[in-house]
Design a protein around this nucleic acid. Structure first.
Lengths: 239, 239
DNA sequence: CGGTGGTTTGATCAAAATCAAGTGAGGTGG
DNA sequence: CCACCTCACTTGATTTTGATCAAACCACCG
């Protein structure tokens, strides 16, 4: 049922009619279970299909010539993290699993056929990639101007918002299968510093982060601190 | 002739047939001259048209609640920096001129009509927005992992590459109407530090930057230093 | 001329990186 | 069942990078 997750996700920002939905449901999809930390596509690959997340967490990341890694985004069920490969034929970054995951592979051919036959779906997918872009912009702001603690808080609040939209956030708690080193590579800091920021935040009663579980304890102060404003996620107002 | 610049730009990454090109040429466009540092659209606006750059430089930027500014991207003739507004109705950032500029405004309505009648053009525009996204990703890497001097060098080399594609780079020299403060806001550092990095780079014979003119003196060392690799710009191989 | 915006310099400070050891929990094999 | 291994996390000491503060300087412009 990963296509259901995709439909649900698309509906977060798009209007689709029954016909569109039926055509999406009819997409040929090849399910695949993947271990944690498995490579899905690598920089410079030329994939022939897109990857729809069904279960688990994925990241996109880029390595520099100096051997440093920058995590570019984190992906949750319903996302199609390599949708861009439909038009950009060479990958400019890696796509990997964070945790054990289930993904559905959909061939570019099938997707292209769908976008030709259903312009509304094409527009919805285009829009998804534009939201993806908006998330990158906010990530730039996060790295560029926010100090470490605010940066982490903002990251967590974004994730909270996105997980809420797919019904995977409740009791102010969610799963986040990232090590402190992963967080460091996402937030442009060192693991040691991430650790110190986590401890400081814990001491201040902002949130707990233990064994891949995040528990947000003071949403109000977290959003003041981080300046998180969900406008850039372009979700429908009624969510 | 700003539509010619757009066509030229689209051709950098796309194949368009004569019919497509004719339809693009037929787009109704309203030309406008703008002063330096003029606002085109602001965060939270809901624009009804897109802005095609004809002459000059534009930036996209976001302000935080703390009053800090992060520049997200820089735009040159041929770009449509707010193409995303076609599908994302609320602006999540500002678009302003850097220098005195000429832009062409094209209504969303006309663009939507064009994308419906010419699927190839729709795909080309989608692809442009995906390249935009790829540029954001590299910007994230720049902010996240590269130290100040490499960061600036990378920024300049990207600009060089993009200006070359539109024929505005020659003799290893190009116009860059940014103050050191603008550079600072783009690169996530302070103007003072930008100044020191520029001076150091000048002393090392890497480049000169005076009165809005950049002169690259040692391309080889600049690219080694910055690790610049143009793959992410997704330009056609034959450029 | 004096203002103004941009650049430059120097001195000091703070945030985060780096270096160097730990601890501690879970998993494996003897 | 326990020794031990590994990976993640934690702590402390030290250094570096870049930020902040303060004050010129300089060129262009009205």
């Amino acid at each position: 049922m990963p296509l259901e997750a995709m439909i649900r996700k698309l509906k977060v920002s798009n209007e689709l009619d029954q016909h569109d939905i039926n055509e999406i449901r009819a997409l040929p999809i090849q399910m695949r279970r993947l271990d944690a930390d498995a490579v899905i596509v690598r920089e410079r690959d030329r994939p022939e299909q897109c990857c729809l997340v069904s279960e688990g967490f994925l990241i996109r990341a880029k390595m520099t010539d100096r051997g440093k890694r920058q995590i570019l985004s984190i992906h949750v069920p319903g996302d199609i993290p390599d949708l861009q490969s439909l038009h950009l034929h060479v990958m400019d970054h890696d796509l990997r699993t964070l945790s054990e995951s289930v993904v559905g592979l959909i061939s570019h051919e099938a997707l292209r056929k769908l976008t030709r036959s259903r312009p509304t779906v094409a527009a919805a997918l285009w829009k998804e990639s534009l939201i993806d872009s908006a998330v990158f912009r906010e990530w730039i702001v996060n790295l560029g101007v926010r100090p470490a603690q605010q940066r982490l808080a903002h990251f967590l609040l974004e994730l909270r918002q996105r997980l809420t939209a797919i019904g995977r956030y409740c009791d102010e708690t969610f799963t986040l299968p990232m090590t402190q080193l992963d967080l460091a590579d996402a937030l442009g800091m060192t693991a040691i510093h991430v650790n110190r920021v986590i401890q400081a935040s814990r001491a201040e009663g902002l949130f707990e982060f233990r064994r891949n579980e995040v528990h947000l304890k003071d949403l109000k102060r977290l959003s003041e601190l981080s300046g998180f404003d969900p406008v850039y996620l372009h979700q429908r107002a009624d969510l």
